[in-house]
Design a protein around this nucleic acid. Structure first.
Lengths: 245, 245
DNA sequence: AAGTGGTCTAGACCACACA
DNA sequence: GTGTGGTCTAGACCACTTA
């Protein structure tokens, strides 16, 4: 009867089943090949159909398979597996590209929130905030100029280790970033910023304005970052609204 | 007992329940307020708990509520509801902003796929493709210069209504766009493009390179579009990988 | 007509939060 | 300890695709 259906020894059943399907089936099939039906899989693994459906749901959300009602479950195309829009930090980004990230702190101070910053952080004007301005480098090359603001209540200036990941430090203080809203635009760099980024005057840059919040919806960060357009671009994956099929 | 739990008369139960929760509960609660427990809701609506969970799952995916295991389901923050990363067309975008979109066709021709285009469309070099170059306008102002390529097999040049939505025409031919991978970068516009977009020479633009595919993973479009940076920006929402909490 | 995924039920046990 | 969301079961019916 082919696959024996033995499962790894940790996690929930549906996770282990998703792992087995990924390792033992998807690797041996081509895109658009059909998978066994949910009822067959339930039999093979000795679980209920709802559990198989939970396993398949995780694979669908990863773009590894897709469903067609009344027809079956099929292997997704390989191209899709280019990491969709997961929240990543500059540090993670660079490591993933095989570069060594670092920071050069330009200034770090306690400030009172002005109109724009207070608005974005959803705090009262005048609220104490921490402001950090850093040049982000990859293998010693400047890649981005970052301006980060967060409420001092979330992380006071005195508590910040400036050279290390701010996200990690926010998480340690119980404010783990869960979701970011980003606005991406483009500008021509002013001379001062161009010099910091070591690009010619008049060069283009990506401007990313980001507001990050915890799972509970608490806003923990407002950042405006200028990325060298010659070295950096953003990948995003968008999908059709849940709609019909 | 307050809410009576009457349901609208169409769609699946869990959709109707999600609608009722959205209209009758979320509108009357503040962010981080707690919702009734799943078991209570199941009683109120006279359905099983799994059905309530399906309803809540849709609200979670829309960012309207969030769960904390062992604690409860809570109202999400309002800020999040700024439309996450749903696939939208230029036309939809402009309509959503209250602008009247239009197109000016610059050229439309049948071409043989060269290396780059063949690679992005995942077809053989030399495959017949349709190439459309259009200036996209909003209320008569140029907003973007669009270069779209797709296999002639998907939509031949003769079949294209150039002034109308290409997405709609692709959908009509059975190739509905389901997912797009986009790369967003920035450049300084060359003089010719700047003139078309009616911006000064040396102005910055967003460059969006997009590959769209159907649910089945068939690539139906490769597009490279230059957006005026002074009029256009991209909003994206990113979330932490599914992980623990 | 047969088979598929989509929805739904009425239970159950678990891990976790919180008082 | 009580209540919560998370998982899981063993069925059922429906809407849809496919032949």
């Amino acid at each position: 009867m082919g696959r024996d259906g033995r499962l790894p020894t940790s996690g929930f059943k549906y996770e282990r089943i998703a792992d087995v399907i990924r390792r033992d089936m998807l690797d041996n099939l081509l895109p658009n090949d059909i998978l066994p039906s949910e009822r067959e899989l339930a039999d093979q693994f000795g679980v209920s159909r709802m559990t198989v459906r939970a396993a398949i749901a995780t694979l669908v959300s990863q773009g590894r398979v897709y469903n067609i009602q009344g027809s079956g479950t099929y292997v997704g195309s390989k191209e899709v597996l280019t990491k969709s829009g997961a929240l990543t930090s500059f540090t993670e980004d660079m490591v993933a590209r095989g570069l060594r990230p670092s920071s050069r702190v330009i200034c770090a101070q306690r400030v009172a929130a002005t109109g724009m910053i207070a608005h974005r952080l959803a705090v009262e004007v005048g609220t104490a905030c921490t402001h950090v301005r850093r040049l982000r480098l990859a293998d010693e090359d400047p890649m981005a100029l970052e301006n980060v603001y967060f409420p001092a209540e979330v992380l006071p200036l005195e508590g910040v280790k400036l050279a290390e990941s701010l996200y990690d430090q926010l998480a340690e203080s119980g404010n783990e970033a869960f979701r970011s809203e980003q606005e991406i635009s483009a500008i021509v760099l002013d001379d001062e910023t161009a010099e910091l980024l070591e690009v010619p005057e008049g060069a283009a840059a990506l401007v990313v304005t980001r507001v990050s919040s915890t799972k509970r919806g608490r806003i923990i960060e407002y950042a405006r970052t200028y990325y060298r357009a010659d070295r950096y671009s953003f990948m995003t994956t968008v999908e059709r609204e849940s709609g019909e099929r």
